[in-house]
Design a protein around this nucleic acid. Structure first.
Length: 104
DNA sequence: CTCTTGACCCGAA
DNA sequence: CTTCGGGCCAAGA
């Protein structure tokens, strides 16, 4: 598998996550048949083109938390977009996968 | 070639 | 429940 098709596969998979739902990096990697490449899902999203309309904000880490530093601009942006989709964070900034996890 | 760097993950304590 | 350490793997220096 070429590196280009890997990115493309990630983008298409992430695009399937429904509004108001979230998936983890590891989950996406697992669904693509590459369970050990969770980190590379994040890299692919960072490389996603602007005009592709990819819901990157719906991908969080396996602990249900946003994987950007809590004081970063990106963290605030992602959290704001998720709140706007109706997701709920607990007091420690975690999302409950039992309630909002994407189960295809 | 080696070394470092991550939008990660999981088991052990 | 939390923290810690080791593992992972592609890309770039």
């Amino acid at each position: 598998m070429t590196s280009g098709s890997w990115n493309e596969s990630v983008w298409q998979m992430v695009a399937r996550i429904p509004h108001g739902r979230v998936a983890s990096y590891g989950q996406i990697a697992h669904m693509l048949g590459a369970p050990r490449k969770a980190r590379h899902v994040g890299y692919a999203l960072a490389a996603a083109p602007e005009g592709r309309d990819i819901p990157w904000q719906r991908v969080i880490n396996g602990r249900g938390m946003i994987s950007f530093p809590s004081d970063s601009h990106q963290h605030r942006l992602q959290k704001a977009m998720l709140l706007e989709e109706g997701l709920q964070f607990d007091a420690k900034g975690r999302i409950d996968f039992r309630l909002f996890g994407w189960q295809p």
